[in-house]
Amino acid sequence: THIHSDVQLTEEAVRRYLIRKPMTTKDLLKKFQTKRTGLSSEQTVNVLAQILKRLNPERKNVNDKMHFYLTE
């Protein structure tokens, strides 16, 4: 069945965001809202966790919040 989604939560999409600028987990979740991806909240958390573990991005604290980022 076709699931409507205009945003896809993929490793490549996350990689592109993190190369552009450091982001918190909350920033990333805003980019992949469930109403845009068609995924459930639980799926979103699980998939994003797996992607971040694979990408293993650099981490830094900005304004006391952990941000992830990647360099090309």
Partner: peptide
């Protein structure tokens, strides 16, 4: 809702903290 977003962020942070 923002509280759902907060819960999701907390769950994701917890998953990733286990990984560190």
């Amino acid at each position: 809702s923002s509280s759902e977003a907060d819960e999701m962020a907390a769950a994701l942070d917890a998953e990733l903290n286990d990984f560190i």
